[in-house]
């Protein structure tokens, strides 16, 4: 239940701060998203550039890159996911504690990108794990990654703690562990996780 904005401002003038648990909770979460220190390919270099002095990701409370998935809230898929690497990516995602988010950074993470025709290239990480924000580009500029952060913050801010549209980590029945694909004799098995990904509809 949100507080009426006008009333909030009025009360603020009187020195009274009014908020809801939900707002406070989301405000805290969105300003301390800790990404996992996890680089895959070219985009990882731009991700590092984003954390450096010029673009300064610390402004968004997200400069604390954690090497361990247990301490991380956000996984930035920064580059091409190969079929050899995909099981490890899913396993790392499974090891992250809820609430957890995923940014698919760059064309390769979204769809395989320029390497889509490759026999060892996974055609988009969203075949195995749910993705919250996609950013196009090859590689996306640091500004684009910053925008992805802002979109993610917006998404976190809009999450409700109760009700049918509550996020996965507050839903006891939601799926928490995602099946890890197995490296078969010719390809990954299965080729996608139907619980996460169905072939999108293309309308032309």
């Amino acid at each position: 239940m949100a507080v009426d904005e006008g009333l909030k401002i009025e009360l603020g003038k009187q020195g009274v701060l009014v908020t809801t648990i939900e707002e406070l909770y989301n405000w805290g979460r969105k300003n301390s998203v800790w990404p996992m220190q996890f680089g895959l390919a070219c985009c990882a270099i731009e991700m590092i550039a984003t954390t450096m002095a010029r673009y300064d990701l610390a402004r968004f409370g997200a400069e604390v890159f954690r090497p361990s998935p247990r301490q991380a809230d956000l996984m930035i898929i920064s580059g091409t996911v190969t079929k050899k690497m995909a099981p490890q990516v899913v396993r790392l995602y499974n090891q992250m504690a809820e609430p957890r988010y995923v940014i698919a950074m760059g064309a390769c993470a979204i769809s395989g990108g320029p390497f889509k025709e490759g026999y060892n290239v996974l055609k988009g990480i969203d075949r195995y794990i749910p993705v919250d924000v996609h950013i196009p580009g090859c590689p996306p500029r640091p500004e684009a990654l910053i925008q992805a952060f802002m979109l993610l913050q917006k998404k976190i801010d809009g999450q409700h703690l109760t009700g049918p549209d509550r996020p996965r980590f507050l839903d006891a029945e939601a799926q928490g562990e995602f099946p890890v694909p197995v490296q078969g004799e010719h390809d990954l098995e299965p080729a996608s996780n139907p619980g996460v990904w169905t072939v999108p509809v293309v309308i032309r």
Partner: peptide, 20 residues
């Protein structure tokens, strides 16, 4: 569940993504 590639046929999207 397969969508029309280049055909414009839109099959219904079945099953809500677990992450939605």
């Amino acid at each position: 569940g397969a969508a029309g590639v280049g055909s414009g046929v839109a099959a219904g999207r079945e099953g809500k993504g677990a992450g939605a």
